[in-house]
């Protein structure tokens, strides 16, 4: 399905944004590396970054299909050269670095291209975690639900890749930051930090993190989707129970 328009996103979704203050003090441009649970992600991030960062262009690492793929390929929109020149002109990039998209929105393996780009150009890499977008706009819907679903956009601390560092090391940093963001949504901010320090991500942020070494096959597909689209527990106190 095509992504919803920016206007629709603005009206229908009210995201919780964290960490944007890391960006306001640094001069642009940035390379944003995000997980990609849903089609909502690109317009959502652009909208959140409006006014803070100039000109965000989003690029997906996952293979596109059909006409779009052909267009992208022919115009060479995803070549390193194009991206580098875009950065040189001051525009920021939003890279969805997952190699393929899980059907229940969980995190999958990251393409090393983002890391490489960061090392090559010296531009700061900002990890972006998107939480709740799968539930807000599952693949079978066109527009987000009208009941203002709760989505979070969490920016991690910018990573400055030193020239000559290993792409996999930088990539690990990025993945760790994104996982931290996912854990924050589950266990609260300090809890996530503590869990990261202890390395207990599996215990705390287990369900969303899902490692790339395939827990995937453990539960049935429908069970996973069911879990991923569970409605948000409302924390508002109910006084009228009947």
């Amino acid at each position: 399905m095509a992504a919803p328009s920016r206007q629709a996103v603005r009206l229908l979704v009210n995201p919780v944004v964290r960490g944007r203050e890391y960006l306001t003090e640094l001069p642009g441009p940035f390379i944003f590396v995000a997980n990609h649970p849903s089609e909502l992600d690109a317009p959502l991030v652009s909208q959140v970054l409006q006014g803070v960062v100039r000109r965000v262009v989003s690029v997906s690492a996952a293979p596109e299909t059909g006409l779009r793929a052909a267009a992208v390929k022919s115009l060479g929109l995803r070549t390193t050269r194009t991206l580098t020149s875009m950065l040189a002109h001051g525009g920021s990039l939003l890279l969805f670095a997952e190699n393929y998209r899980a059907d229940d929105g969980t995190l999958t393996e990251f393409n090393l291209g983002a890391a490489r780009l960061g090392i090559q150009t010296g531009v700061q890499i900002v990890p972006v975690t998107l939480v709740g977008t799968y539930r807000a706009l599952p693949p079978w819907r066109r527009l987000p639900e009208t009941s203002r679903p709760k989505v979070s956009v969490i920016f991690g601390r910018p990573i400055q890749a030193a020239p000559g560092s290993e792409p996999s090391a930088v990539n690990d940093q990025i993945v760790k930051a994104i996982t931290l963001g996912l854990a924050e949504a589950e266990a609260g901010w300090y809890g996530a930090l503590r869990a990261e320090a202890e390395g207990t991500f599996a215990a705390v942020a287990g369900s969303s993190a899902g490692s790339s070494t395939g827990d995937v096959g453990d539960s049935a597909r429908w069970q996973r989707i069911w879990k991923a689209t569970a409605p948000d527990k409302s924390t508002r106190r109910t006084v009228w129970v009947k």
Binding site: E21, T24, Y190, L193, R194, E196, A197, E198
Partner: peptide, 25 residues
Amino acid sequence: TAPDVRQRVIEHVLELAAAAGVDDV
């Protein structure tokens, strides 16, 4: 529009605390 300076400082402090393994905060 920007967050309070106390928020910024305390977030740094707590990040360091979490990394060091402090639970009783």
